[in-house]
């Protein structure tokens, strides 16, 4: 933490993440409930990505990768649950499940890109 002062070191009373978490949650909810693919994917990425960010900023996580991996795992499990639930209702849940998987895939791509291209010193805070 000392080597890379975070926002909270400079501005102890500010954090950029809460507003985006609060935006990501309703956008993803609207996307999933009304089956609007782009909103569901975008909202989930915003929500999950910012949760990973805020965990890192508040020192609940030491690197970004742990939280991102956890988010991917939760998304995959949620998408799988939607696929299973699809068999029990007449309402089509498949596209919603695909939206959740798409978010997980994009986050995974981000994770790989981050691992490959972000210099180590900045990657680990």
């Amino acid at each position: 933490m000392d080597e890379n002062p975070g926002l909270s070191d400079q501005y102890r009373k500010a954090s950029p993440w809460p507003i985006f978490i609060a935006l990501g949650l309703p956008v993803s909810e609207i996307g999933l409930v009304f089956d609007i693919f782009p909103l569901a994917v975008g909202g989930l990425l915003l929500f999950c990505g910012c949760i990973a960010g805020i965990l890192l900023e508040s020192n609940y996580a030491k690197t970004l990768w742990g939280p991102v991996l956890t988010m991917i795992a939760i998304l995959v499990a949620f998408g799988a649950a939607l696929l299973v639930a699809d068999g029990y209702t007449e309402i089509g849940l498949v596209t919603r499940a695909y939206a959740v998987f798409a978010s997980a895939i994009i986050m995974s791509a981000g994770l790989v890109a981050g691992k490959l291209f972000v210099p180590k010193q900045q990657a680990s805070v």
């Binding site: 954090s15 978490i21 309703p26 609207i30 900023e57």
Partner: peptide, 18 residues
């Protein structure tokens, strides 16, 4: 939990719009 506090507030404007 100051950040949770901020999240709790910022959930409200989208809630009102909905």
């Amino acid at each position: 939990f100051p950040r949770i506090n901020a999240i709790a507030f910022w959930l409200l404007p989208p809630s009102a719009l909905m």
